[in-house]
Amino acid sequence: MNHIEIIERQRAALHEAVRPFLRQGDSYALLDFPDYANVGDSAIWLGASSLLRSLAGRDASYAASHKDFSLDALVRHCPQGPVFIIGGGNFGDIYPAHQQLRWTLLRHLPDRVIVQLPQSIHFDGEEGARETAAAIAAHGQFHLMVRDRASAAFAQSHFDCPVILAPDCAFALGPLPRPVTPDRPLVLLLRSDGEQSGEEYAPFDSLGTTPVDWARLPAMPADVWRQAKWKALRSGRWSRMARHIEVLNAQARWRLDRGLALLAAGETVITDRLHGHILSILLGIPHVALDNRTRKVSAYHALWLEGLDNACVAGDAATAVVALSRLGRE
């Protein structure tokens, strides 16, 4: 199956999963903006923003990261309507600040529908899972979207809430054009954070390519903020929140553009980042994906991407090198 067919199937599935929670004209909040360098989470934010805007016909009434979130501001700007939490791979105890935001929402907004957009779930210990389960049970209006079968099985056995399988929100971006012409045979995008698999990557030495990671992007220029604020004003969005949302989207777009340019520089890609895999699909780049520590790459691929004709998942680095040659690289 070609990558366009895969993308369109997932866009349709996303629309179907989210549509019951939002109607034209509804106000809503979108929370946990990724205020950090990870390109994949910026792709998720922009995909979710586009999807929700298409369903409601408007931007969010309130948006925030976990760092600048204010319960009072949420209630003031968005007194009614669903609260959406951005998807990704931080549902669990690896990233406690994001989980703390979920607990805060569940405990302090008992009268609001809260929708967790598609996540992968991973808990290293039982304590965090028990605390999350208690908060979900006490709330009663929490809807949990997950993007792989293992997460669905865990959620169904631990949490008392509707569990919905849905694709990653980055697919709402649709097919993307290559922003640059390839100038090298291969981009080797490998994690440099706590989600590294710990597998031996010595076989990659034979490829003669230095690994890169988009978690190490350069600092964002100040012009990104200034231009976003002027864009909001020129389009008649005068409120402080409207300008704030425009700035958030501009930051996410800047990070995504850097990541797309990094991937598109290669004729092919090998990556252990799930969104290295997903964005390579959106760009139509032949590539090989490896698993990370939480195995979310293979879990996602097995559910949504089987049969993709220009990409595969390899179990280890040596297999990835062989698989790459089969995708057309000598």
Score class of each variant (00 low, 15 high):
Val146Gly: 03
Lys67Arg: 15
Gly208Glu: 05
Glu8Asp: 14
Ser70Thr: 11
Val83Met: 08
Ala73Arg: 14
Thr104Trp: 05
Arg11Gly: 06
Ala222Cys: 03
Gly88Pro: 05
Ala232Gly: 10
Glu267Ala: 12
Cys78Asn: 08
Val75His: 15
Leu117Cys: 03
Ala302Gln: 14
Leu274Asn: 02
Ala250Asn: 00
Ala215Arg: 14
Pro175Glu: 12
Ser206Phe: 08
Pro211Trp: 00
Leu263Asn: 06
Gly87Trp: 04
Val224Thr: 10
Asp93Phe: 04
Asp291Ser: 08
Gly266Trp: 02
Ile121Ala: 08
Leu324Thr: 03
Ala56Cys: 11
Pro221Glu: 07
Leu52Gln: 06
Tyr62Leu: 08
Gly87Glu: 10
Ile285Ala: 09
Ala261Ser: 13
Pro185Gly: 12
Gly194Tyr: 12
Ile86Phe: 14
Lys229Tyr: 14
Glu131Leu: 12
Ala323Ser: 14
Thr209Pro: 00
Arg112His: 14
Val224Arg: 04
Gly140His: 11
Thr209His: 00
Ala302Tyr: 06
Ile7Pro: 02
Asp291Arg: 03
Asp93Ile: 02
Val297Asn: 03
Thr271Gly: 09
His77Lys: 10
Leu188His: 02
Phe21Asn: 00
Asp183Val: 13
Val83Pro: 03
Val321Pro: 02
Ser206Leu: 07
Ile114Tyr: 01
Val75Ser: 15
Met220Tyr: 00
Asn38Tyr: 01
Arg184Pro: 05
Ile85Pro: 02
Asp35Ser: 09
Phe204Asn: 00
Gln156Val: 11
Asn2His: 07
Ala29Leu: 09
Cys312Asp: 11
Thr209Lys: 00
Cys78Met: 07
Ala152Asn: 06
Ser54Glu: 10
Ala250Met: 01
Ala60Asn: 00
Asp168Leu: 03
Gln156Phe: 03
His122Gln: 09
Thr181Asp: 12
Pro211Gly: 01
Gln24Glu: 14
His301Ile: 09
Asn292Val: 00
Glu127Val: 13
Pro118Phe: 02
Gly47Met: 02
Ala133Asn: 12
Asn90Asp: 11
Ala17Pro: 05
His122Val: 03
Asp32Met: 02
Cys78Ala: 12
Val187Gly: 02
Leu217Cys: 07
Val297His: 01
Gly128His: 12
Glu246Cys: 13
Ala250Phe: 01
Leu30Gln: 06
His287Leu: 04
Ala138Trp: 11
Ala265His: 13
Arg9Leu: 15
Thr132Val: 15
Gly259Asp: 06
His122Glu: 08
Gly266Thr: 04
His66Pro: 10
Leu106Arg: 04
Leu207Glu: 01
Ile285Asn: 07
Leu188Arg: 00
Asn90Val: 13
Ala12Leu: 15
Ile7Thr: 05
Ser192Asp: 15
Gly47Phe: 00
Gly25Phe: 03
Val180Asp: 06
Phe91Asp: 00
Trp45Gly: 05
Pro203Tyr: 11
Lys229Leu: 13
Ala73Asp: 13
Ser70Asn: 13
Pro110His: 07
His244Lys: 12
Ser192Asn: 14
Ile136Phe: 01
Ser235Asp: 15
Arg293Met: 09
Gly174Asp: 13
Phe123Asn: 07
Ala302Ser: 14
Ile245Gly: 06
Thr210Tyr: 08
Leu263Lys: 06
Leu324Cys: 07
Val224Gln: 04
Ser325Arg: 14
Glu5Cys: 08
Trp225Tyr: 15
